[in-house]
């Protein structure tokens, strides 16, 4: 691998730019695609791989190429810079998520409580509007405070986020759904909310709850959505 290519791949990852790494297996010739200097068939293979989010060996004009789609990392947006968030953020980073913690309460959203994690102290609806959650984004609300959780959930349900989770007991969640129903959300929208949040592993402590939440998010990302009762 050429050092300039390595730097280009890292820069693309940091800027959430989709690129493809292509290597001709016969001689190790390589490109970071799209690249005007690359043959059109190679650029096309790169675009196809990104579309399918695929990594593998492709035959192009009789030659074998390793074509590696490098789509932007999945994102996790955590609303509430609370104790569980402190446990969840590093787990999510380790699992390859690009993590943002949102909390306008600057006492909670102190950088020293979240080393290395992006913090946003805007109100959750404003912060989410800026982040533009897409189909590669998971959102979890942890504040317990409807003033903060509700605007976040409203934004989340209006987005394409692949996972929306909300901390809170069944009773808390029922009250939450009543408030959201009054705003026009229906059962189809509610079926997207993972609540009580996380896989049922009997979690009690903050780290245990964080593990159950990241496990559920990974499952949703990999197409293993848990069946939930009514």
């Amino acid at each position: 691998m050429i050092y300039a290519h390595l730097l280009r791949l890292r820069q693309a990852a940091a800027e959430r730019e989709p690129v493809t790494y292509a290597v001709r297996l016969a001689d190790g010739a390589s490109f970071v695609l799209p690249d005007q200097a690359a043959p059109p068939a190679i650029n096309q293979a790169g675009a196809d791989a990104l579309e399918a989010d695929r990594i593998g060996v492709v035959e192009i004009d009789g030659e074998s190429w390793f074509i590696e789609a490098r789509n932007p990392a999945p994102r996790l947006v955590v609303v509430g810079a609370v104790h569980i968030a402190q446990a969840l953020a590093p787990l999510a980073v380790t699992a390859g998520f690009d993590v943002t913690v949102i909390d306008p309460r600057t006492g909670f959203a102190a950088p020293e409580r979240f080393p290395g994690v992006r913090i946003d102290t805007a109100w959750p609806d404003e912060a989410l509007a800026a982040l533009q959650p897409d189909a590669r984004t998971a959102i979890v609300t942890l504040t317990h405070d409807p003033k903060l959780d509700d605007p976040a959930l409203i934004s989340a349900l209006r987005s394409d986020a692949f996972y929306v989770g909300a901390l809170g007991s069944s009773r808390t969640h029922a009250k939450r759904l009543d408030r959201l129903r009054a705003l026009g959300f229906d059962d189809a929208a509610f079926s997207r909310i993972a609540a009580p949040v996380g896989l049922d592993i009997g979690a009690r402590t903050a780290p245990e709850i964080a593990i159950s939440v990241i496990a559920e998010i990974v499952g949703a990302r990999r197409g293993k959505r848990r069946e939930r009762g009514a």
């Binding site: 730097l7 390859g96 998520f97």
Partner: peptide, 21 residues
């Protein structure tokens, strides 16, 4: 948006290219 830009991304366990760099 009040983002804390001092925060640098923590390295994921799969960021082998970062280690190589």
């Amino acid at each position: 948006m009040n983002t804390d830009d001092r925060a640098l991304p923590v390295r994921g366990a799969e960021d082998i290219l970062g280690i190589a760099a």
